[in-house]
Amino acid sequence: MSNVLPPRYQRNYKSISVEDQAKLAKAAIAIVGCGGLGGSMAEEFSRLGVGKLILIDGDHVEESNLNRQLFATEETLGIKKVEAARKRLQAVNSTTELKLIYDWFDENNAANFFEGADLVCDALDSISRRVTLEKACHSLGLPLVYAGIAGWYGMLGVSFPGDFSVSRLFRHGEKGVEKTLGNPAFTPWVLASLSVVEAVKIIVGREASLRNSWLQVDLLDMEFERFELM
């Protein structure tokens, strides 16, 4: 059965069936933020065969991004992150359609930015904007995969319209501990991969594992613990 797939997707099989591969090819996923989380997510979606990616970031690549951000290389320093994304993703999978938005997400541009999207991935670095993003997604009827990272730690989950999981989890305080703990390479890559897993399940019609719950990730103690949002 896998021989009907292009060779580049044959190793997705049979974790991803031929039918699921077709669903991914028809899917459009928006990623808000092209930094540590967003870069790794985009790369994985592209390799998996997601048909269209909408990448949103109003920033440029800086030297301080080099420790963790996939699109940040010595060659891309100073250019727009979405342009760095284009270079990388076209090299990885030229069949991935890209909609690149050099701008910052806010509630007023969400409908325009997310037009045609089936799902949104949060790769923001701001708690308040993450809450805004959830409200925008819910008003547009879009599921959201959200994640946050700081130092050795991270958390992620899935919010369907009406769940308001992000609002409940992130209602206290704007200043996350990442301001003091930094963001070493391994944490965004782990959390990005976990986010991509949830996103793929939603796209292919499997049940998301982290709806009305969140996964607390502690890489220092290598603990992954799931909590219910009750």
Partner: peptide, 9 residues
């Protein structure tokens, strides 16, 4: 159970 805000991306 107490958790800190984890906001980075």
């Amino acid at each position: 159970s107490l958790f800190p805000p984890v906001g980075g991306g």
